[in-house]
Amino acid sequence: MTEILAQTINSVARGLFLVPMVLGVFISYRILRFPDVTVDGAFYLGGTLSAVMIIHGFDPVSATLFGMVGGAAAGLCTGILITRFGIQRILAGILVTMALYSINFYILGQGAYSFTLDDVYLKTWARELAMTLFGTDRQVYVMGTGLSAPMLSMLYVSLAVILVLLTVLILFFRTRFGLAMRAGGENPSAARTVGANVSTLTVTTLLLANALTGLSGALYAQDLGTVETAAGLGQIVVGLACVLIGDAFFQRRSFSTRLIGAALGALIYKVILGLIMLLGDIHAMTKLLTAAFVFLALMLPIWLRGHGKRADKSEVAV
């Protein structure tokens, strides 16, 4: 029992790092209505950029922000490929992600596939924070369960950061620009008739979504203490899985509620995956499980609704 609780709390702590990316995927998938593959590239670009910054002596906060800027740049590129050059939306994302693969090798230097951070990064910070909060950097006991103090203090901090981020996003989507962004994705024709520049809105949506992804990538790399060039592989599918979990609870609610739902989806995803891990080390299987889950999550509503009747294929995409 204590093992399950410990694992769950651990998963939630990890899951919080994933929340910005899932919010990003929610934004591109729900507003622009296509899975933006740039997320894969933006995720590891965020990771490598922040790692390199830390190695060059910058503090974790500026390193993380820099990772976010990297993600935003990736989103900007995809947006320009789509709106300026008229390239198919998924292909544009694939092109940018592929290009970023080489760029990551270059940033890491000497064509390394991975490297380890051994200086100041998020974990060191968390340890110092634990000393101030709990007076120890080892174990604290919550309900008879031994939990790592740095992990728990990191959880508090990231929870606060995520709440602020969610609030900012919810408020943003109530501004005139945020509303126009939603309109431009959902019904470009209606948006244009009220005078919105749909191309600019599309680029900004992708920029915002991938900036959030870059933030997640930076946090993830610093939490792990290592960066792999392949870290971003399939992140878009992970993001979709979380978005779909969130929608299972909040499908017919307001945009703000569904945004919160996506964040919760990220945590639920991590917790479920964490509990499966307890059954045995099946780390290599997680991507297969996630892909299968996304397939089922997309098909189930159609199968349930369909009852033998041929489902409208176009609905699967959204």
Binding site: F172, R174, T175, R176, F177, G178, L179, A180, V194, G195, A196
Partner: peptide, 10 residues
Amino acid sequence: RGQRFDLGFA
């Protein structure tokens, strides 16, 4: 319509 979609509340 005809104005900028800015960051003011809609």
